[in-house]
Amino acid sequence: MELFGIFITATLINNFVLSQFLGICPFVGVSGKLSSAVSMGMATTFVLTMAAMVTYLVQHFILLPLGIGFLQTVAFILVIAALVQFVEMVIKKVSTALYRALGIFLPLITTNCAIMGLCIFAAMKDLSFIACIVFAIGAGAGFTLALVLMAGIREELELASVPRALRGAGITLLTAGILALSFMGFAGMKF
């Protein structure tokens, strides 16, 4: 039940994009088409989960025992960057189509603050290993949800007569703002 709470919290209540405003860059960048939004969401969820597991190990078996917790940020950046590089190589080898579809955004996941944010949150909250994984999957699901909703809206807006000055990123950020307002409804939800 506690794990379910962690999942729902990460997905809806503290949605990484819509209430914590993390990962806005891919949210604006890759939400133009539904298909690429889905694959970006999947890739980010995968990287989030891997990063959460690896940084948990780094935190609990290297940083804490050696008493060098102050190196957390640097260590996490290094680990995440290496991890994304590795994931990129695997995807390139296994699925060239997906690799092409993700394009520049796969390397960009490295600098996605949602990943870093998740690892630091998990370390701060001192979650167990299993809770960490659930937290990461929930965050990924929330990220994917926000991305897919936005992609659907943006495909619809292709046909709308949005004022020229607002086309593209402008209307996306405005829409995201209204979406964030509506996600305030989940504030304080408890199970």
Binding site: V148, E155, S182, F183, M184, G185, F186, M189, K190
Partner: peptide, 24 residues
Amino acid sequence: IREFGGLPEGVMYSILMMNAAVPL
């Protein structure tokens, strides 16, 4: 939202959220 959320009422938020899902 009414049962588990922190707010007593959630109709407005629910409609806005489902508005966002209408294209899908």
